[in-house]
């Protein structure tokens, strides 16, 4: 059933791609791999990729999902791109704080603030 639904939906806003997660859980290995692949192809399409991950629908994630996000961050950096995370619910934000990944990622409270934070 859920296998046929793409793991993310992408909205283009000028040169920024806004990514929304379609599942409220980023847990399953297969789902995480699927999301990772989709994000990698978005990154590889452009020279200076600008990616905004909107977490507003996400209620659960695992360390495997964090690993995938770190991988994505490294890939964006390699291409001199910019990655922003936004709309992370409090419980999920605590996971980022505990793992100190708030130091690695640029996390902004809202989508608007994240959009405004991209540089040319």
């Amino acid at each position: 059933m859920s296998e046929s639904i793409p793991p993310v939906s992408v909205i283009q806003n000028k040169d920024i791609r806004i990514v929304e997660f379609t599942n409220n859980k980023i847990l399953d290995e297969a789902n995480i791999a699927d999301i990772g692949q989709t994000l990698i192809s978005l990154i590889d399409e452009r020279d200076y990729p600008k990616l905004l991950l909107d977490f507003s629908s996400v209620d659960h994630l695992s360390s495997a999902a964090l690993g995938m996000l770190i991988n994505i961050n490294n890939r964006v950096k390699k291409k001199n791109g910019q990655l922003r995370l936004a709309n992370i619910k409090q419980q999920i934000l605590e996971v980022f704080l505990l793992t100190k990944l708030n130091k690695l990622f640029r996390i902004l409270p809202s989508r608007d603030e994240a959009l405004a934070s991209f540089t040319q």
Partner: peptide, 21 residues
């Protein structure tokens, strides 16, 4: 320790930290 500066960009090692936290 996955939160150490030298490990922060590594993709694994956070599961145990989360369980314990």
């Amino acid at each position: 320790d996955p939160t150490a500066d030298e490990n922060i960009e590594k993709c694994s090692g956070r599961g145990i930290l989360l369980m314990e936290a």
